[in-house]
């Protein structure tokens, strides 16, 4: 019964490998085991971090900051002068926002944020950076050809508008304060926050009045 045996062996082999994690997953498991054994990390802390960034911490926090700045001039003034202190008021201060600068869009200026080195990002208030922010295509072109990059996002900036590109580092990260859309004077902070897109706080979105309520 050699044919049956070889098929059985192949099936068993496939079954065994079907639940074998990838090489990368095994390497992380190994690293985590060693770090936990040495008392250098607590597995509960890892679980809590993953849960927080999967469920809780995301661009809604940044949208809340933007909506408050639109509605409260004193808060906006503080945000522009000392962003970490202003964000601390909302309880969202974290390592990634401890050194944060807010840059404001105006009729004449559009701001775009990138990290040309790796992927520095104010993740305490925007969550994990989107895939495109980490891509070489974005990191290498945002400084060289910001208008071209913005056009790929469907954002066409008039030539009279100056584009300022901010290169984030581990020590200084940036958040764009987009312009408040016209016709929103009666809106409260919650409603305003619903107009803010994640990309508008990085600078790959601009006119929030054009498509209100877009998903983050």
């Amino acid at each position: 019964m050699p044919e049956f045996d070889s098929k059985k062996v192949a099936d068993i082999h496939q079954q065994l490998h079907s639940h074998l994690p990838s090489d990368s997953a095994l390497r992380i498991k190994a690293l985590e085991t060693l770090l936990v054994d040495k008392g250098l990390v607590n597995p509960d802390t890892i679980d809590a971090w993953v849960e927080a960034y999967s469920e809780e911490i995301g661009p809604k926090r940044g949208a809340e900051v933007v909506a408050k700045a639109w509605s409260d001039s004193k808060f906006k003034q503080k945000l522009m002068q000392d962003a970490p202190a202003a964000i601390d008021e909302l309880g969202y201060l974290g390592k990634a926002t401890a050194h944060l600068k807010v840059v404001e869009n105006t009729d004449d200026v559009h701001n775009l944020v990138v990290c040309t080195l790796c992927s520095c990002y104010p993740f305490s208030i925007l969550g994990i950076a989107p895939a495109w922010y980490k891509a070489a295509a974005y990191r290498s072109r945002a400084v060289r050809d910001p208008r071209g990059v913005l056009a790929e996002f469907g954002v066409h900036i008039n030539n009279e508008v100056e584009i300022r590109v901010w290169d984030s580092t581990a020590e200084l990260r940036y958040l764009v304060l987009p312009q408040r859309p016209a016709g929103t004077e009666q809106m409260g902070e919650d409603e305003l926050a619903g107009l803010v897109t994640r990309n508008s706080m990085i600078g790959t979105d601009r006119d929030l009045g054009a498509n209100p309520g877009r998903a983050y």
Partner: peptide, 25 residues
């Protein structure tokens, strides 16, 4: 670039764990 805008931030759990460990350290 905008085609990848809606991609999930983590494709697999190990990626989240790797970032978590780096941030914790």
């Amino acid at each position: 670039l905008h085609k990848v805008d809606g991609d999930p931030v983590f494709d697999e759990p190990w990626q989240a764990e790797a970032l978590a460990i780096a941030d914790i350290l």
